[in-house]
Structure formats: structure tokens, C-alpha cells
Amino acid sequence: MKSRTRIPTTPLLMILPSFLLAMSIIGYPILDLAWTSMQEVSRFGKMMGFIGLANFAEVFRDPLFYSSLVRTLIWTVAVVGGTLIISLPIAIMLNDDFYGRGLARVIVMLPWAISLTMTAVLWRWSLNGRAGLINATLMDFHIITEPIEWLATAPLAFTVEILVGILVSIPFTTTIFLGGLSSLPQDSYEAAVVDGAKPWELFRYITLPLMKPFINIAIVLNVIYVFNSLPIIWVMTEGGPANGTDILVTYLYKLAFRFGQLGKASAISLIMFFVLFVFTIAYVLMVMRQEHDSTAEEVKNDA
């Protein structure tokens, strides 16, 4: 075998700085969390000794953990599902040519430009029970007669938070779909139209199947982002009232930085890390499959 692959050092040197930084800022804390999760830790962060999986056991005995977990599931499924259902038709409209499309794009993308924190602050004030202008608007239109305390009871507050969560996820998802739609082959549509397909059939038999990879990627990325999203709930209700809107991230944050239960918090972090890891692997596999397809294409074109 005369195959000679030189080991090129230049590219390795070029990626080295970014790699080292990512390793120390993202890699190291994971190890530290793993270590901490098996230690007994005092309120002030002092390691009191190895206690094996006791922290994990404590987490799994904690009813608040389970209620947060369930709420995390509801939160993730509801936000991701709602986002996808709304974003696809919006992307299809925005991909089409109509009067004022530029303006519509800017408006739809607007929540992305504003930080989640600011959006949540705005909504917290808009939904204020006494003086909030949402109540003012609804009363002006005689939809309600009395102001509603939107954020005072957990179920209503959580529902509102889910809706805000959907709102802020739409721009990113729409962007993925727009990227996908713009890459769809125009001639498939022309061929289908010539074959006599109606708009709904075009959507059902051409758009949807061709968009499937983008929908998959949107699902996985949104699951990851929404699962991790702290600011909306934290700013609007801080997981309250009475832990009634806590999801795992807010519960974790409280444990770590309010109650000083560092061992337990590390254990939850680690559990979340593994959940994330599974989704990330799913994402990586998806991207790799796509890239495999496109490199196969490239090789064919090169030859």
C-alpha cells in the first residue's frame, strides 16, 4: 500500500486555541459537576467528603424534583410543538412573494432580536394584574370585565409562560424553515403543477417530505433550547408561586444559588447533562447524515 496521508500540522494548530478554550470552559465544569455531585457539600461550597450516589438518591426522593420534571416535560413538549405548528405556515407565507413581505419578516423576527430577559420583563409588566395593559386591551374590547391576575396562580402563569415561550421560539424556527424552503428545488414544484397538483397536494406531497430533515433539526434544536431556557420563567414568576411554575432549570438554579444545596444541584445538573447529551447525539447524527448525503453529492460532482 503506497497510500501516503501526511499528517498536516497546520490545520491542527489552527483549531487548537478554540479547542483548548472550549475544553476548559465547557469541558472542565462537566468534570467538576461530576465530582461535586458525589461529594457532601456544605452551604458554603466546602467539600465534606465522598458520599457516592447519596446526592442522586436525595434528588430521586425529592417530590419537587418530580413535579419540576413533569413540568419540564409539559413545557418542552408544549413550546416545541406549538412553535413548529405555527412556524411552518409562517415560513411558507414568508417564503412566498406578497406585498409587505419585508415588513412581515422583520416583525416575525423581532422577538429574536430582544433578549429573553427583556421580553420576559416586558410581558411581566404587560400582564400585571392591576395596571397591565393586556387587561386594559381586553377590557376595552369587552372580552373581560374584571382585570385578571395572570401571574398570581400557578396553572395560569405556566400557561402564559408557555405561550411566551412559543412566541420567542418562532423566529429561530422560522429561520430554519426559510433556509430549508429556499433550498427546495423549484422544478419539482413546476413538474407537480404541470402534473395537475393542487396547492394542498403540493404541500402534502412535495413541501412536507422535502422539508422533513429541516423539521427534524428544528425539533431537536428547539427541544435543546427550550429544555434549557431559564429567563422566561425566572423573570416572570421565579418558579413561583410556591414552586408552581418551577421547571428543572429554575429548580436547579434555586437549589444552587438560593438554598446552597450544591451537591444536590450538581446531581440535577448532571442528570440534565445526560438528557442533553442524548439529544445532542441525535442532532449530531442527523447533521452527519445530511452532510454525508451532500458530500457524496460533491464527490460525484468533482469526478
Binding site: I7, L12, I26, P29, L33, I224, V249, F273, L276
Partner: peptide, 28 residues
């Protein structure tokens, strides 16, 4: 170069890791 695919996947993973999951470790 060899390791290119690996590095890209590594980057993807770091992109997925949200600060909130690591925040305690980062703080420490």
C-alpha cells in the same frame, strides 16, 4: 485532515451545552 469530523461534532456538542446546565461548575 484527520479529526476534522470529530472536531466539528465537538463544536456541535459545545453549542448544545447550555450555560445553565454548567452554571454551577462554571461558578466554581
Amino acid at each position: 485532515f484527520s479529526g476534522k469530523g470529530l472536531y466539528r461534532n465537538f463544536l456541535l456538542m459545545t453549542q448544545m451545552m447550555s450555560p445553565i446546565v454548567l452554571v454551577l461548575g462554571l461558578f466554581r
